[in-house]
Nucleic acid binder design. Structure first.
Lengths: 148, 148
DNA sequence: CTATATTTGTACGATATCGAACTAAAGGAG
DNA sequence: CTCCTTTAGTTCGATATCGTACAAATATAG
C-alpha cells in the first residue's frame, strides 16, 4: 500500500477511537451505581433482538470474549436486571432473560439519552449522523470479516 | 428532540463503538509483550507533536484522567520506552521524553500497521476514509466541547 | 510574609477486560 | 457403548481504567 494512504486510515481510526471514548464516558457519567456501557448494551440487545439467548450468542453479538460476557452478565444478575435459567436443550448452557427491573432501567436510560442528545443535535444534526452511518456500517463489516 | 432522530445517533455511536473495539483488538493482537494501544498512542504523540511534555498535558491531549496517564507512563517507563526528568520550571511536575528504544518500537509498529492495512484497503478505500474524516472530526469536536 | 486555595502527580481500591486453563456436557468415530 | 474432540461456561491471574484521597509545590489573597 502506498504510504500516503496510511494517514487517512490512521486519522480515521484515531477519531473513531476518541469519539467512542468520549461518548462512552458521557453515557456512563449518567448511569447510576456501577452500571457501565456493556450492561446497558446487553439489556438493550435483549429487548431489541430477543430474550432467552445464551451467553455465548451474546458474546458473539458484541464481539467480546465469552469470559467478558460472563462478567457482564454476572453484574446484571447481581443487580437483578437479568435472570438465567438452564437451557433444556443443552445442559452445558444457560439462557438469559431480562427482568422487569432491567427493562425499566433500560427504558429510563433511553429517555435520559434522548434528552442529552439535544445539545448535540444543534451542532451535529441527525441527518449528518444518518449520512455517515452506511459508511460506518460498511467499515464495521469489513473489519469484522478481517478478523482471524 | 423528536424521538425518530434518536435511532440514527444510537446506531452511529454503536457502529463507532464496535469499530473502535475491533480496530483496537486487531492492533493490540500485533503488539508484543503487554503493550497496549495507549502505550503506542503516547509514543506516537511524543514524536508527532512534541517531546518533554508533562503527564497532565498528555492526559488532556488524550482525554483521559491523569491517573490513567500515570499508569500508562509507568508501563512505558518500565519497558524503557520513555524516561522522565524533573521539570525545572515546576517542581511538582515531570517531563516525559521518548527513548531510542521507544522511537524504534513506534517506527516498527507503524511499518507493521501499514502492511496490515492492505487487506482492508481492498474493501474500504483510503478515499472513503478521507471522505468521512471531516465529519468524524466535527463530531469529535462537538462531543469534546459538550463535556462538562 | 502568612494563610488559604489551586495544581501536579501518586497511592489505593473497585471494577473491567481478557487470555489460559479448567469442568461438564455434547457430538462423532469406531 | 467407549474414546476422542468439540463446545459452553467459569475460574483465575494479569493488567487497564478511573474515582477518591492524599502530599508536595505553587499561586493568590490579605
Amino acid at each position: 500500500m502506498a504510504d500516503d494512504k496510511v494517514p487517512s486510515y490512521f486519522a480515521m481510526f484515531n477519531e473513531i477511537g476518541i469519539i467512542a471514548q468520549l461518548a462512552r464516558a458521557a453515557f456512563e457519567a449518567r448511569m447510576p451505581d456501577g452500571m457501565v456501557l456493556p450492561h446497558f448494551s446487553v439489556l438493550n440487545h435483549l429487548i431489541r433482538v430477543e430474550d432467552g439467548q445464551t451467553p455465548l450468542v451474546l458474546a458473539r453479538a458484541f464481539q467480546v470474549p465469552k469470559t467478558s460476557m460472563t462478567h457482564t452478565l454476572a453484574g446484571l444478575e447481581k443487580r437483578g436486571m437479568v435472570e438465567t435459567r438452564p437451557n433444556p436443550e443443552d445442559a452445558r448452557s444457560k439462557r438469559v432473560w431480562i427482568t422487569r427491573k432491567g427493562r425499566a432501567f433500560r427504558d429510563d436510560a433511553i429517555k435520559d439519552i434522548v434528552e442529552d442528545f439535544a445539545p448535540i443535535e444543534a451542532q451535529f444534526s441527525g441527518e449528518r449522523a444518518s449520512a455517515i452511518l452506511p459508511e460506518l456500517e460498511d467499515l464495521r463489516k469489513v473489519l469484522d470479516a478481517a478478523r482471524d
